[in-house]
C-alpha cells in the first residue's frame, strides 16, 4: 500500500514525534508542531501514537490511496473530502483503493495531521521519520513531499471507522491567543518597563513563521539595561556570549521582534532569550495563523507544571476513549 501525492499542498512533510537526543549536536528534535493532534490522529486509526503522519500547513494536499485503509485528519479545521464528498475531522474514516483525499479552505488553526492505518513507513533517520529539510534528514530524501511521490505505508488491519474525538478534547485557538511564558535566564537584560510592555502589549504572528520559529510583530522596541559587552558577546545589546536555546525559548534579536523557537530550531546561539513558552502551549503555536493577535502571559514554574499535567490529562482521556 502506498499514498500517492497528487498535489503536495504547501511544505507538507512527514512527521512523527521527532528525534530527541541529538540537540547537543545541533540536530533539533523535529516532529509534529502539534503533538497532541498527531497522537490523536494515530490513536483514531489504531496506530502507535508516534507513527509517522503527514503534517500540512495552511493548505491541504491531495492524496490517492492504492489500497483500502482507515485514515483520520486532526489539528486545524479544514473540510475533509474523499472523492469530493465531505467527511468530518477528528474521526476515523474508511477509504477504498483508488479514492482521493482532498481539502477545502482552512477555517481555523494552521496545521492538519493525516494519519493512515499502518503509518507512513519511509526509512527512519536517527530513530525518527520526521522530515528536517535543513539537515536533509527523514521524510522522503530529507525533503517535503512532492507531486508524484509514493509513500510506503505499513501493514495494518486499521481501526474501525466512525470513532471520533469529542469536541471538548480538541483545543481551539482563542482570539487573542494566550501564550504562557516562564521568564528566563536573560530577562534581566531588558528594563522593567520593557518587560511590562512585552507582557502587556498585543503582538501579531508574522507571516514568515515556520517550523523553526514563529516570529511576532506589533509590540514596542525593547530597552536594554546598559552594560559593558562581555568578551565574545558582540556590541548589539541583545547579544550574549553564546548559550543553549531550549524548545519554546523566545529570542528577541536587537530587541525588536520576538521569535519563539519551535521543533526545527537551532540549539544555541548568541541572542538573549526573554523566557520560554511553557510546554503546554507549544502545540497551540503550531495552530497559529499569520496575523493572529497574541498575548504573552508570565507564569510561575508551578503554573507551568500544572498546565503540563492538565494537557497530559486531556491526552489520557483521548487514550481512554479510544483504548
Amino acid at each position: 500500500m502506498t499514498l500517492k501525492i497528487v498535489k503536495p499542498g504547501l511544505a507538507t512533510s512527514i512527521q512523527d514525534l521527532g528525534r530527541p537526543g541529538y540537540f547537543h549536536l545541533g540536530i533539533p528534535m523535529g516532529g509534529a508542531m502539534d503533538r497532541l493532534a498527531l497522537r490523536a490522529a494515530n490513536l483514531l486509526v489504531g496506530n502507535d501514537e508516534g507513527a509517522a503522519c503527514l503534517e500540512a500547513a495552511f493548505l491541504g494536499p491531495e492524496v490517492e490511496f492504492t489500497a483500502p485503509a482507515t485514515i483520520a485528519i486532526t489539528g486545524a479545521t479544514m473540510p475533509v473530502k474523499i472523492d469530493g464528498a465531505e467527511h468530518p475531522g477528528w474521526t476515523a474514516i474508511a477509504v477504498k483503493a483508488g479514492q482521493v483525499l482532498s481539502f477545502g479552505y482552512l477555517k481555523a488553526g494552521a496545521r492538519i495531521y493525516i494519519a493512515v492505518s499502518g503509518g507512513i513507513a519511509t526509512p527512519p533517520a536517527l530513530g525518527s521519520r520526521s522530515t528536517y529539510p535543513i539537515g536533509a534528514l527523514g521524510g522522503v530524501e530529507g525533503r517535503a513531499v512532492q507531486a508524484g511521490d509514493e509513500l510506503p505505508v505499513g501493514a495494518a488491519d486499521g481501526a474501525q471507522a466512525g470513532r471520533s474525538i469529542a469536541p471538548d478534547l480538541r483545543r481551539a485557538v482563542s482570539r487573542p491567543a494566550e501564550l504562557r511564558v516562564l521568564p528566563g535566564l536573560y530577562v534581566h537584560r531588558i528594563t522593567d518597563e520593557a518587560r511590562a510592555r512585552f507582557f502587556g502589549e498585543e503582538w501579531k504572528v508574522a507571516p514568515e513563521a515556520d517550523r523553526m520559529g514563529v516570529r511576532f510583530r506589533g509590540g514596542s522596541q525593547m530597552d536594554f539595561v546598559p552594560r559593558t559587552p562581555p568578551f565574545g558577546a558582540g556590541s548589539d545589546p541583545s547579544n550574549i556570549v553564546d548559550g543553549c536555546y531550549s524548545y519554546g525559548s523566545i529570542q528577541v534579536p536587537s530587541g525588536t521582534e520576538p521569535i519563539v523557537l519551535h521543533r526545527d530550531a537551532v540549539s544555541g546561539g548568541g541572542y538573549f532569550t526573554i523566557g520560554a513558552v511553557i510546554s503546554a502551549d507549544m502545540d497551540l503555536i503550531g495552530q497559529l495563523q499569520p496575523h493572529t493577535p497574541v498575548h504573552f502571559v508570565p507564569v510561575t514554574m508551578a503554573t507551568a507544571l500544572a498546565a503540563r499535567a492538565e494537557r497530559r490529562a486531556v491526552l489520557n482521556r483521548i487514550r481512554e476513549a479510544l483504548g
Binding site: F58, L59, A110, P290, H291
Partner: peptide, 9 residues
Amino acid sequence: IPSPLPGTF
C-alpha cells in the same frame, strides 16, 4: 477569486 490560504496578499 478566494485566497487559497492565509497570509499577506
